[in-house]
Design a protein around this nucleic acid. Structure first.
Lengths: 203, 203
DNA sequence: ACCTGAACACCGTTCAAGT
DNA sequence: ACCTGAACACCGTTCAAGT
C-alpha cells in the first residue's frame, strides 16, 4: 500500500516489494497467486478503509453518498499505482461488496424503486470509478503529485494553441478551458447525477 | 493500429511492431521519439477517423453529440490496447483539437452561454473518455473480445454470492445487477448528461 | 510452511555501428 | 536518412532446491 503511493505505474512490483520487505522477490508468490490477486487485495483493502471512515449515522442519503464518493476518489488518486486499475477490476471482496451495499442503501433511502436503484447504482458507481481511474492515471502519466484536485484538466494543450483558424471555438474559450480543475469537473458531474436521482425519486 | 485491436495490454510494443513490419524493433525509434509518442499518435489518428465518420450536416446538436460519443466509445473499445489510455492522455493533435471543437460547437448550438459551455464540455468529455477507458481496460482484463456493449457490468461477482446476511440489498437485487450491460450503463449516463444540457439551456 | 536461486520470456531504451 | 546489433535495466512467472 505504501509503494502504491508512488506516482509510478510500476511502483508495485514483486521485486520492489521483496526489496522493501528484505526478502526474495518471488517469496510473495507464497501469499498471492499472482500480481492480479495482489492488486485486487490492495484495492479491496483500500475500499474497506474508505467505508470505515465514511460516517454512516446522522447523515441523509445525499450528503452521505457525496462524501463517500469524494473520499473514495481521493483514496484512489492517492494510491495511483493501484487506483488507476479500479475502473474495470472486480475483487468480489468485502470492500467491494460493502461499497455496493452502501450505494444501494443510499439509493433506496432516496426513494427509488428497485429498477431505478439498479440503474442509478450502475451510473453512479461507473462514474466514480471511471473518474478515479482516469485521474489516478493522470498522476502516473505526469509523474508528479500535485495537490489533490488541483490538476489542470486540459493543461498546456490549449494555452499554446498555434493553428488558431482551424479551431475557432477552442481558441475563443481557451483561457476558460485551461482554468478547469479535476475536482471541479468531478463534482459537477457528481452533483448532476445526484440531481437525477432526486428527480427520479419525485416521479 | 492493427496490433491495437488485440485484447492484450502489451499488444502494441516496439518488438511486435518490428516483427509485423519485418524490421528491427528499434527501427521505430527513427519515426517516434518513444512509446508515448507512438501511442499518442495512434490515439489522435483514431479520434480523427471517428470525427470524419460522424455526420456533421443535417443533424441537430443532440443526436449529433450522441452519435459522436457512441462512435468514439466504440472505436476506443475496439482498440483496447491504446483505448484504455485515452482518459488521461493529451496529444494536442488535430484529432483531439477537432473533437474539442466538435463538442464545443454542439454545446453552443444547444443554447448554452460560455460559462455553461465550458462546464458541460468538461463533464461530457471526461465522462465519455473515462467510460471508454474503463471499458477498454475491461476488454484487456478479460482477454477476450465480447460483442460490443454486451459485456456484463458486475459479471459473476454478484451471481455466486455466499455470505448473504452481510449484504442484504446486494443479495436481494443480485439478478438485476448481474443483468446490467456496458452499453446500457453508458447510454443511461450519456442521456442524463444531455438532459442536463437541455435543462441548463432553458434556464 | 516459507524462502532462495536460477532461469525464461518478455518489456522500453540507448548507443555505436553499418549502408 | 534509415536500419542493425548488442547491451542495460527492468518486468511477471516457473520450478527445483533449500530450511
Amino acid at each position: 500500500m505504501q509503494l502504491a503511493t508512488e506516482p509510478d505505474v510500476d511502483a508495485v512490483s514483486f521485486r520492489r516489494l521483496g526489496q522493501v520487505l528484505g526478502v526474495h522477490p518471488t517469496a510473495v508468490y507464497r501469499h498471492f497467486r499472482d500480481k492480479d490477486a495482489l492488486v485486487l487485495a490492495l484495492l479491496d483493502r483500500l475500499t474497506l478503509d474508505v467505508l470505515q471512515r465514511v460516517p454512516v449515522e446522522g447523515l441523509a442519503w445525499r450528503p452521505r453518498l457525496r462524501v463517500g464518493a469524494i473520499a473514495y476518489l481521493d483514496a484512489l488518486v492517492e494510491h495511483p499505482a493501484i487506483g488507476h486499475q479500479i475502473g474495470f477490476r472486480a475483487s468480489g471482496g468485502p470492500g467491494e461488496l460493502g461499497a455496493i451495499e452502501f450505494l444501494l442503501v443510499c439509493l433506496q433511502e432516496a426513494g427509488l424503486d428497485d429498477v431505478q436503484v439498479v440503474r442509478h447504482y450502475a451510473l453512479t458507481s461507473s462514474y466514480v470509478l471511471a473518474m478515479a481511474s482516469a485521474q489516478a492515471s493522470a498522476v502516473l502519466s505526469s509523474g508528479r503529485v500535485t495537490a489533490p484536485g488541483d490538476r489542470s484538466w486540459l493543461g498546456a494543450l490549449v494555452e499554446q494553441l498555434t493553428p488558431v483558424e482551424a479551431y475557432p471555438t477552442v481558441t475563443r474559450l481557451r483561457s476558460q478551458l485551461a482554468a478547469l480543475r479535476d475536482r471541479e469537473v468531478f463534482l459537477t458531474g457528481l452533483d448532476l447525477i445526484l440531481d437525477g436521482i432526486e428527480a427520479a425519486a419525485h416521479r
